[in-house]
């Protein structure tokens, strides 16, 4: 993790603090105030803010433009990039565009299949995959070169992240896959939403057994449940999600008007439990279309105030 970046996220992590990140989904329109408003709700409680890249393949304002907006506000954006919609020319070009605004974090993803979104009849690109995107950004940064071999003037200084899903199948390659992302050059991980803490802790132990936690910062992904209905939906309908029956039951047993409050309480309890797990470097709090709850979660989980970083 040698490169010198202006990433606040990297500075917080390398100073040994538990980092807090969150995410904002860009609007389905061109109103810049939407993203500014969401960012203002969370800016004092997080170190960096991910901007999603046409998540679930629904067309939205581009991640790069929304990241620039956050950068102008003085925040530290994490540019999410999926390999679904752009080939290697466009990906390199957007990395340089981001770097020209000193956007210093990138999260490399493959992206949901376009069949989930509003352009199901569209072509997908997948010129490179998420693992190769990690390699590409590291190559541009560390070697200062384009994929084609030419020198980059003022190479990008990106802190390079990747996603990990400790719950996806097949489980036996979950740790080899993490090792592979580290080998590709990933420096931080933001995990899939964690609800099955026992399974996540088992995954973390396997990561520690291979010493992977010392080679990469792992941020645990936390998404509060708004209702028992959401828990059921996440359990049954969202690919790669592991929601234990006990959690669904706890929410179902709570009166409807108190379920949101209970969901926040569970999220805070989970963070407090995971804070004690060796190898966890922070939390990625994804309160989906519920950004206003992030400050309360962060405060009550004992992660506030955020550290001062020079």
């Amino acid at each position: 993790m040698k490169a010198n970046t202006s990433s606040r996220l990297k500075k917080v992590l390398s100073a040994g603090h538990l980092a807090v990140t969150s995410e904002c989904g860009p609007p389905r329109g061109s109103d810049p105030e939407v993203i500014v408003k969401k960012a203002n709700l969370i800016k004092d409680h997080v170190d960096a803010v991910n901007i999603t890249d046409n998540q679930t393949s629904v067309t939205r304002m581009c991640s790069l433009a929304a990241c620039i907006r956050l950068k102008i506000m003085g925040l530290d954006p994490v540019l999410q990039m999926v390999t679904r919609d752009r080939n290697r020319i466009a990906l390199q070009s957007d990395i340089l565009g981001a770097a020209s605004f000193d956007i210093s974090n990138v999260l490399c993803l493959s992206g949901d299949h376009q069949s989930f979104g509003d352009c199901a009849q569209g072509q997908n690109v997948h010129d490179i995959d998420s693992m190769q995107l990690i390699q590409m950004v590291r190559h541009m940064r560390d070697d200062g070169k384009f994929l084609g071999g030419d020198d980059i003037k003022r190479p990008p200084q990106m802190f390079v992240g990747a996603a990990a899903n400790p719950f996806a199948d097949p489980f036996e390659i979950r740790i080899p896959r993490l090792a592979k992302k580290i080998k590709a050059g990933a420096e931080f991980i933001q995990t899939q939403c964690i609800y099955n803490l026992d399974k996540f802790e088992a995954w973390m132990k396997l990561a520690r057994d291979r010493g992977l936690h010392e080679q990469i910062y792992i941020l645990a992904g936390m998404t509060p449940m708004k209702s028992a209905g959401m828990a059921k939906y996440m359990k049954n309908r969202v690919p790669g999600m592991d929601v234990p029956d006990a959690l669904v039951k706890r929410l179902s047993d709570t009166p409807k008007e108190k379920q949101a409050e209970e969901g926040i309480k569970i999220c805070i309890e989970d963070i407090q439990r995971l804070k004690e797990v060796d190898g966890i470097s922070g939390f990625h709090v994804m309160a989906i279309e519920w950004e206003e709850m992030v400050p309360e979660i962060v405060e009550k989980a004992g992660l506030y105030p955020r550290p001062e970083i020079k």
Partner: peptide
């Protein structure tokens, strides 16, 4: 693979099936 990923599987692989359709076996599985 629906995303032709060369270093798979992607995060959408569930029970050995592809995220786009439960009838499709995940190539990386």
């Amino acid at each position: 693979c629906a995303k032709r990923v060369l270093n798979g599987p992607c995060g959408g692989s569930t029970d050995g099936k592809c995220e786009i359709n439960k009838e499709i076996i995940c190539a990386w599985q």
